[in-house]
Amino acid sequence: MNVQIVWEQYKTVQDSFPNLVLTFEGNKYFIRGELHFIAQFMEVPTEEAFLIELELPITYPHSLPIVRELEERIPDGFHKFIDGTLCLGAPLAMKITFSNDPTLLGFINKLIIPYLYSFSYYKRNNREFPYGELSHNAKGLLEYYMELFQVCSLDKVLHILYHLSIKKIRGHLPCPCGNDLRTRNCHGTMLLGLYEHQDTFEFKKDFTYCLQYIKGELN
């Protein structure tokens, strides 16, 4: 971790969210405090505040912060991992979003606040989501990849993920989506671009996880 980058990025966070405090504990950096924000959907603004904690991994910014909501306002059933950390979205989607503004302030504005606003909206509007919702766990990951790849079957998702996991995206070969087009004339540019955000090891993990779900091997 580049400590200078962390402190420089934190200064911009403090300018926008002065109640968030950076601390160093047990060889880790944390940002804690009340996150006060105003967000809107369909031109209806909502003002909210949550007590949160960001834990910065030693590999930040190559790895994303871990986020917790500290007052237990958000129930376990609402897109949280088993350890209580917040599930802000599909991992690849988060990486792509973060890449557009790879700073702590960008992470807060583009990932944490939309999540917290979605929860607030969900509570106030009969469990409706403002931006749509993915299912939990592997099912949600499959839904994300189906939308990303613009395919309509789980088999096609798995086939594309497998090719990504072995880095076999070749322009002259048939596209792994199963169309009759060559990769260069179909998904090629998009799939190759994904390697900027996720490596073959992570795609292999996603492929294995989705395959286990489809085969009914997950609880």
Results as ranks from 00 to 15, higher is better:
Leu154Glu: 14
Thr183Ser: 06
Cys175Pro: 09
Lys167Ser: 09
Gly140His: 10
Met190Lys: 12
Ala138Pro: 13
Lys167Asp: 10
Pro130Gly: 04
Leu142Asp: 05
Leu154Ile: 14
Met190Phe: 01
Gln150Leu: 15
Asn185Thr: 13
Tyr145Met: 07
His136Thr: 05
Glu143Val: 00
Asn137Gly: 10
Gly171Val: 04
Ile169Trp: 00
Ser165Gly: 09
Gly188His: 06
Pro130Ser: 01
Asn179Tyr: 06
Thr183Cys: 12
Cys177Asp: 03
Gly171Lys: 03
Tyr131Phe: 15
Asn125Lys: 00
Pro176Leu: 05
Glu143Thr: 01
Pro130Trp: 05
Ser135Val: 01
Thr183His: 00
Asn185Gln: 15
Leu158Pro: 13
Pro174Thr: 02
Tyr144Val: 00
Pro174Met: 04
Met146Leu: 15
Glu143Leu: 01
Cys186Val: 02
Arg184Val: 12
Ser165Leu: 06
Cys177Ile: 12
Arg184Trp: 11
Glu143His: 09
Ile160Trp: 04
Ile166Val: 15
Arg170Ser: 08
Asn185Gly: 09
Asn126Tyr: 06
His136Asp: 11
Leu161His: 11
Lys139Ile: 03
Gly140Tyr: 14
Asn126Arg: 07
Lys139Gln: 08
Ser153Ile: 12
Leu158Asn: 14
Arg184Ile: 11
Cys152Pro: 12
Arg170Tyr: 02
Leu158Phe: 06
Gly188Cys: 01
Thr189Met: 07
Val157His: 11
Tyr145Lys: 14
His163Trp: 10
Phe129Ala: 05
Cys186Gln: 02
Gly188Tyr: 06
Leu173Ala: 14
Leu181Cys: 07
Tyr145Gln: 09
Cys175Gln: 02
Leu173Arg: 13
Val157Ala: 10
Leu141His: 15
Arg182Asn: 09
Lys167Thr: 04
Thr189Pro: 05
His163Ala: 11
His163Ser: 11
Leu154Arg: 10
Gly132Cys: 05
Ile160Asp: 05
His136Leu: 01
Phe149Met: 13
Leu161Arg: 12
His163Cys: 12
Gly132Val: 01
Tyr144Glu: 04
Val157Pro: 08
Asn125Val: 06
Arg170Asp: 10
Gln150Arg: 14
Asn126Val: 07
Asn137Met: 11
Cys186Trp: 04
Val157Phe: 08
Glu128Val: 06
Gly188Leu: 03
Phe129Asn: 02
His163Lys: 15
Tyr144Phe: 15
His187Asn: 10
Asn179Val: 09
Met146Thr: 14
Gly171Ile: 04
Ala138Arg: 10
Tyr162Lys: 05
Thr183Glu: 04
Arg184Asp: 04
Thr189Trp: 02
Phe149Leu: 13
Phe129Glu: 00
Asn126Ala: 08
Met190Glu: 08
Asn125Tyr: 09
Cys186Glu: 02
Leu161Ile: 09
His187Gln: 12
Lys168Arg: 13
Lys156His: 13
Gly132Lys: 02
Arg127Lys: 14
Phe129Trp: 02
Met190His: 02
Leu158Val: 10
Val151Ser: 02
Leu142Ser: 11
Lys167Ile: 08
Ser135Ile: 00
Leu134Tyr: 15
Tyr145Ser: 04
Ser135Leu: 01
Asp180His: 06
Leu154Tyr: 11
Gly140Ala: 04
Lys139Asn: 07
Gly171Phe: 07
Gly132Ala: 00
Ser165Cys: 09
Pro130Tyr: 06
